[in-house]
Every structure is written in C-alpha cells, then in structure tokens.
Amino acid sequence: MLHIVNKSPLTSNTLDSCLSTATGGDILLIEDGVYAVTRGNAVEAKLRAAMGQFRVHVLMPDLEARGLGDRLVEGVLPVDYAGFVELAASNKTCQSWL
C-alpha cells in the first residue's frame, strides 16, 4: 500500500502517525512533507530507521522548489510526477495523511 505525507515533520504529527500505523510498503513524501528527507534535520534518524521497513520516495520537484534538491538523504528514492502516478497506480490502496 502507498502512504502519502504532505506536511512538514517538524510542524505536524502526520509523519509520526503514518510511521506508527503503516506496516510496510511505499511512503511518498510530497509538498512540505519533503523536509523529512533532507540531511541534518531533526527527524533524519527516525526517517533512516523507517527506511528499513518501507520504500521511501520523495517528489523531487517539491524538494527542488524548496532549495533542498542537493540534500536528499541517501537511499530515499527520487520520483517525478510520472513516478508519482506510477506509485499510485501500482498500489492497490493509498492513504493520504492530510
């Protein structure tokens, strides 16, 4: 299943809620959610731990818009809009943690 997080991890509890509920599969970070996958931020360790259990993807246009395209935590899978559609289409269900 696909889980989508679009809120900043340092302002909202949606990433925490997602990580403690989801059991595996794909997580896609979009919009302000992309700050979670930038090196040196306070949730980096939590995110790295989650990468053992989930495939973590990030929507690159959103990361680049925020000036952080060069700070992607290694191992996170970058996708473009076509990749976003691919993820949504290949998973049976999708939960958006709004």
Binding site: S8, L10, P61, A65, G67
Partner: peptide
C-alpha cells in the same frame, strides 16, 4: 522561526511545481 526559516533557504527552484 519554526518552519518559517525555510522561507529564506537559498537555491529555490520552482519551475517543477
């Protein structure tokens, strides 16, 4: 403060969005 500091980040490229 808080996420507001992200407003001042260098290198923002918004063509993609």
């Amino acid at each position: 403060l808080d996420d507001g500091v992200y407003q001042l980040k260098k290198g923002q490229q918004t063509k993609g969005i």
